[in-house]
Write a protein that binds this DNA or RNA. Structure first.
Lengths: 252, 252
DNA sequence: CAGTGGTCTAGACCACCTC
DNA sequence: AGGTGGTCTAGACCACTGA
């Protein structure tokens, strides 16, 4: 049974090694998610079962789950149970793709993988993905279209170790969502991402793929994506055509 | 004393007129914020006082406040009390300004008001601000710089009624943050914003102000800002120079 | 019907802040 | 010392789901 101050005895608390019981619980649950005890889409045990398992009250488990639900790690469904979040779910396709049509609705999204090859990490990629310079990486290029309209040209860098057998054919046969594929085939769950946006001029390749004039302005979105434990597992540069689309962001 | 189902008797609940007690409480607290019973920066009554006032338990008030704190309407400070959020606070200057330096730290931010004049709302502005076409509006132009480096050129549209006496002189003498000024001088608190980002080519005016070549790519950020009750009270178009800066966004 | 999450309560104790 | 928010508990009842 855990205690409130199991590892920490703050007198006037500036102790950095302090966390309340419910956070200790949410860490334990997270560890079970990492270890695969419960996979994406699965139900986890009920609050009362978890309470018994960890020797705390149901309210404390509830607060732990609340926190994890607000981080999109778990999803609660009244009457059914609490589920491990998954990208294999139409509702979450747009969680990391903040794009919308300038007017009207988006036509159906299609992902067109173009290339997929192996390389060795340069200094920048290595630093971003927290791997050794020269370590194997995989580079993917793909195009996103809404209906027949090209919208985004992505160049994606992945650590070779995690996605060992990825090929263009797998990408082509895979699901619509890349993250859904990563999750089901490689057990790599994307949790959080960091984006940097800039305006740039279209080079020849991007211009052709996105069917805009060379040199016309494009929105460059650089994204680093993290899995459990803030481990970076993807770096991508996306060129967004913003003639008919825009990047949508809500500020709270 | 409120009851759980005061205005709502769901049998199998698809009733749209349902909200739990704690939400009824947070609405009451929000109403007091709107009415100015507690102004920005003020302490609100303690949880137990509010519990007594509304005839509910402290835990229910706590949950109501939790919700409002997560929406940045209130700020909790342990041992001190719960405070009304304010833009008049260095920590919140960047809540709506998602800009960062490409490398290193940002130099101190400076706001340079350029113009301020009155006009009548055209169709687009009227629709965006939910006012009548032809209603009085105020248009502001200003430049943001980090150190000596120009970063953003903003064109801002405001409903004339709310900001009746706004002039360039007031803007010049005002605080660094526009929202801080709006809050303290006009009692208009910005709660939430919606942004649309596109890449565009710099026109002559923007190019000159931002010291870039005409036609070079700029990040266009269109923002609609809302106050209590999702009422739109600002529309702005910001041209961001992204040579040395970028728009930073975190995806959860 | 039983089981799940959702809401509400009452009371205890802790940590932080101010006086 | 006394007040505030922060955490934890135990127990009650409600609403939703599915067998």
């Amino acid at each position: 049974m855990l205690k409130f101050h199991s590892m920490n005895r703050p007198s006037t608390n500036h102790s950095p090694t302090f966390s309340p019981l419910y956070r200790q619980i949410s860490r334990l649950i997270t560890r079970s998610l990492e270890s695969g005890e419960w996979g994406p889409g699965d139900v986890i045990p009920s609050e009362s079962e978890l309470a018994a398992r960890f020797g705390v009250s149901q309210g404390t488990v509830r607060k732990a789950i609340d926190e994890m639900a607000s981080e999109n790690l778990l999803v609660r469904r009244q009457g059914k149970g609490t589920f491990v979040a998954t990208h294999n779910d139409p509702r979450s396709f747009f969680r990391f793709l903040r794009i919308a049509a300038n007017d009207g609705e988006l036509e159906p999204l299609r992902s067109i993988p173009l290339e997929c090859w192996r390389a060795k990490a340069g200094v920048d990629v290595a630093r971003t993905l927290a791997i050794e310079t020269g370590a194997p990486i995989i580079i993917v290029r793909r195009l996103l279209r809404f209906g027949d309209e090209p919208a985004v040209f992505d160049e994606i860098y992945l650590p070779g170790e995690l996605f060992h057998d990825l090929t263009l054919d797998i990408l082509k046969s895979g699901e619509t969502s890349l993250y859904s594929l990563f999750e089901s085939r490689y057990g790599v769950r994307m949790i959080r991402a960091d984006e940097r946006l800039r305006a740039v001029s279209a080079d020849r390749v991007s211009a052709e793929l996105l069917q805009v004039a060379e040199g016309s302005p494009l929105l460059l979105v650089e994204r680093v994506t993290f899995t459990y434990g803030d481990k970076p597992v993807e770096w991508r540069r996306g060129f967004y055509s913003t003639q008919n689309f825009h990047y949508h962001n809500e500020l709270g």
